[in-house]
């Protein structure tokens, strides 16, 4: 496929077009991904998550600049929510990254979730593969960041940065279930604001609690970094931490373990998607409606109905 060749050469227009093909789930998307896949696996994928207003995009902007100073090429995928009412989206992460627009070593793509609920769009992982295959060495994936647990990012990224900010009324944001498990690095951004030290302390206490409840010591203790992303202060140290995490992953064998987990999760996801699709293709609309009616009339319970459908019974 011609488009693939251009993508592998790193041609931006081809990369942009292929991303669209994949995002729109066009018929040739599958084949394209099959051809791309052997060329993926080089990039360091860094997830950036955190509640709205913590400064994720600004932080990504500064980290990207730092990586560029170090001679690396950077891809950025910024995800924003699709309105469940209109189906549209306001993709406003790019506005924080104006310094990067014309840098030839940077590619930024804004994505809407298009209905996915885990913090990323369904196609995000595949879009990352395109950037990986195109040669971008560090790929930032910025999640929706509405504040709830965003499990998707843990499965997509090698290193997950959780961004907090003081004064959002919740120094304990990080203590909510799920966040400690997915964070490899904590950043307290807008550290010039009141309450920054309290936030750091809250995170430290939570990490200590977590540590003592785990059997055996954790090998990687998530560091907590203070930054003022707008001015770039503290960002160098965060990038060092990101690099440090990658080194740890490789040296400890964690990298391989996570790759396996990712591949397994992805396969499971796709299988589920495919099986559902296959099932719905087999079942006529009328039959489904019939089952629903029977359930409402209490003639059949939902579980038995589902079983019959799966087995192709009436």
């Amino acid at each position: 496929m011609d488009l693939i060749e251009h993508v592998l050469k790193g041609e931006k227009r081809a990369v942009a077009r292929l991303i669209s093909v994949i995002e729109d789930d066009e018929p040739r998307a599958r084949e394209a991904l099959a051809q791309l896949y052997p060329h993926t696996g080089q990039a360091h994928i860094v997830g950036v998550t955190g509640a709205t207003g913590t400064g994720k995009s600004t932080l990504v902007n500064e980290m990207a600049k730092e990586y560029r100073r170090r001679g690396r090429t950077v891809g950025i995928v910024a995800v924003d929510p699709t309105s469940p009412f209109s189906g549209g989206a306001f993709l406003g992460d790019r506005i924080r990254m104006r310094d990067l627009f014309t840098d030839p070593g940077i590619f930024i793509r804004s994505m809407a979730t298009r209905g996915s609920l885990g913090g990323l769009a369904r196609a995000t992982a595949d879009v990352v593969k395109v950037l990986d295959a195109a040669g971008y060495q560090v790929i930032f994936v910025e999640t929706v960041g509405a504040g709830q647990v965003e499990v998707d990012i843990a499965r997509t990224a090698h290193t997950v940065i959780v961004v907090e900010a003081p004064g959002l009324g919740d120094e304990v944001q990080a203590i909510k279930a799920g966040i400690p498990e997915i964070a490899d690095i904590f950043v307290v951004n807008k550290a010039d604001r009141e309450g920054a030290d309290k936030t750091v302390l809250a995170l430290q206490m939570m990490l200590d609690l977590n540590l003592s409840s785990r059997s055996g010591g954790a090998e990687w203790l998530p560091p907590i970094h203070k930054t003022i992303a707008l001015s770039g202060e503290g960002v160098g140290a965060v990038v060092e931490a990101v690099e440090g995490h990658l080194a740890y992953l490789r040296e400890s064998g964690e990298f391989q373990r996570r790759e396996r987990e990712r591949a397994a999760a992805e396969l499971e996801n796709i299988l589920r998607h495919e099986l559902m699709r296959g099932l719905f293709e087999r079942v006529e609309r009328g039959l489904l409606e019939e089952f629903v009616d029977r359930i409402v009339r209490r003639e059949l319970d939902p579980y038995s109905a589902a079983e019959k459908l799966v087995r192709g019974q009436r």
């Binding site: 931006k12 991303i19 669209s20 209109s86 989206a89 993709l91 627009f101 014309t102 590619f107």
Partner: peptide, 24 residues
């Protein structure tokens, strides 16, 4: 129902064209 990439103020033509390309 559209996806709007809002890049805001003080854009140079170069920035606009490059963003349009990357965002397809």
């Amino acid at each position: 129902g559209m996806e709007v990439i809002y890049t805001g103020l003080w854009q140079t033509p170069e920035m606009i064209a490059e963003a349009a390309l990357q965002e397809d």
